[in-house]
Design a protein around this nucleic acid. Structure first.
Lengths: 346, 346
DNA sequence: CCAATTATTCTCAACGTGAGCATAAGAGCC
DNA sequence: GGCTCTTATGCTCACGTTGAGAATAATTGG
């Protein structure tokens, strides 16, 4: 969302009580290219995909595409999303899933200066990047640029121990009483896997929210009125509005979903090698997988079937091309790629 | 929701385009008492918890509690929900989780006659029934009254084979072309577990939506303008608006959640016997569980700890009272009660 | 032909899960 | 008290799944 009040923005609502209400939809449009999970962002916060407006202090920030709901013509929320994503970005999205509705006060900073309250319904959509090149005003970004601590593919991210743990512990200790300190500490331990607690790849939102509460991300400072936060640093790039929260929600949801629904295939071409498939799953999950076991999982699990054709040389022995095996939907209730706790090798 | 436009209804929005927009919140308030999963319903559709209005043809239908969002004073959506649930039902809810935002056109039949488009943000909340007696205008209902085919505790529900399968197959065959027939058939098989596909307890919404599409539930007839559907039958009781869909969403979500988050304990007293715990899980999951294995799961899994005290005689050997072991949150990423595919004995 | 690289097949141990037997400890009844 | 009924609790066993890695196959580039 954004809180656009122009034609590309949300649907204005006047409830007679004050600043009013705007309702609209945000899209987290995800693709995986070159083993990187990518999300489509628009250049300047507060814009629709291509509509410029007046300058603001946060113009540099990326934002998620935002579009309106037209109550007169959009029969469903999902159709509204598909409509404006097609109109604005030229993308015909395939998989679409509603994520969450965001409605906190002041999620749009302009509410402070009399702007309307902006409610945004977040959607996750999956596309293949080649089918959806970024247009002017928008671009694809590696989602780990915004949440670097989520990528464990190269091992445990250093920022966790160098920055996050110390800063978070300071915040825990800063609680007003002992019970508060304990509560904060428990939340931090569970979310970030400190103190022996295992890392849980799905708690993406929990982690971002703790960092926000602890004042460690630029957005917290901005929302408090401190205008000075830098836009990027070791704690990732900031986004406009609460869009990093929406992104975190999307990642967590997607990581959970691949375990029990075959959604990965929405991100892959018709046929693919098992290594390609593995790399896409790893990109989403942010963790490395054991190659042989992964193969066993998807093959014996009936998730894919060989095509008999081989992929052209990628450096070693040619790999067979596989395709998604649709019948698996009938056979198993939860056909997905279960992720291990956190393995090591390849 | 409901599409209340009175003070107890949603927040009116005038977008200048036509009938306007109303936004509000629906609560699926769940408790488990006497081994039955219950949901709080209000007596007449289209009402807030206690506010009467003009008569309508669907006054007999139950509906879910609905309340407004006050953009001026409710800081978050969840706080809005807590506020009006407390005000209207006198219930201080504990666990609250946003479910889904419902915004299909004509989900409120009054849209057809010029009423505003009603967007509703659905919430799931868990309470203990003893802490929340139903007040005038509302009552607790077994949720399987509305979705009888979801309760497998007494074995496979007869209605599945007697009514649902035949009627659904007729609907499948009624598709316009062969591809359509195949598509319908696949959806039906997967959702209802026909043709060898296993039953999946989480697909509650898929099932309801198929029945709705196939015109087998009263709500489909009502929404098509056929006014004659009966309010209850072997396919369960109807609800106002799309509230049965919201209920189905809640059940599916909750069934999924108990597997990896210890939410069941929100429905139980401070201490409980393992059988009590098992009955609550069975009530939610709609399936029987193997007693010894269930015990092993929750005990060895570190989910509960014994208190040393015994429960007074319930007919046999006294059982030890257990309590939820909070530390499990730090130890395991997904502490919940994993459900088996579909066991048999007790 | 050799080295490097990726693909593919197998093995093995550890663990979790489904199912059921066996025993324990109460209540009610004779 | 002894018997039966009922629920609680402990234990075993077979089997499938999972984590880890060894071993072998088929390419490409020297």
């Amino acid at each position: 969302m954004g809180g656009n009040d122009g034609p590309a923005g949300g649907t204005r609502i006047d409830d007679g009580t004050g600043g009013g209400l705007v309702i609209g939809l945000n899209a987290v449009i995800v693709a995986v290219t070159d083993e990187r999970p990518r999300v489509l962002v628009v250049r300047r916060a507060g814009h629709g995909l291509g509509t410029p407006s007046e300058p603001s202090p946060y113009d540099d920030l990326a934002a998620l595409p935002f579009g309106p709901l037209d109550p007169a013509s959009d029969r469903t929320l999902e159709l509204a999303l598909r409509r404006w994503v097609r109109e604005q970005a030229g993308i015909g999205v395939g998989y679409v899933e509603q994520l969450y509705t965001f409605g906190d006060q002041n999620r749009d900073p302009r509410e402070r200066t009399g702007g309307p309250r902006v409610i945004s319904i977040g959607y996750l959509t999956l596309v293949r990047e080649d089918a959806a090149p970024a247009q002017a005003g928008s671009r694809w970004r590696d989602w780990y640029d915004y949440l670097p601590w989520e990528d464990w593919r190269g091992g445990r991210p250093a920022v966790l121990d160098d920055e996050l743990q110390p800063s978070l512990l300071v915040w825990c200790d800063a609680a007003s009483d002992d019970a508060g300190r304990r509560r904060r500490r428990e939340r931090v331990d569970i979310a970030f896997g400190f103190g022996g607690t295992p890392w849980d790849g799905y708690r993406v939102l929990d982690r971002y929210e703790l960092l926000y509460e602890a004042g460690l991300v630029t957005e917290s400072k901005r929302d408090r009125g401190d205008d000075g936060g830098e836009i990027s640093g070791r704690l990732g790039w900031a986004m406009g509005f609460d869009h990093r929260r929406i992104l975190a929600t999307a990642i967590g949801r997607l990581r959970g979903k691949i375990k029990y629904r075959p959604v990965v295939f929405e991100l892959l071409p018709e046929t693919f090698t098992l290594l390609q498939l593995q790399r896409v799953v790893e990109a989403l999950a942010g963790q490395p997988l054991h190659k042989q076991n992964f193969r066993r999982l998807v093959e014996k699990g009936g998730l894919v079937e060989g095509t008999g054709r081989l992929a052209s040389g990628t450096g070693g022995r040619p790999a067979e091309r596989f395709r998604f095996r649709r019948d698996v939907l009938r056979e198993r209730p939860t056909p997905g790629v279960g992720l291990p706790s956190l393995p090591s090798s390849s």
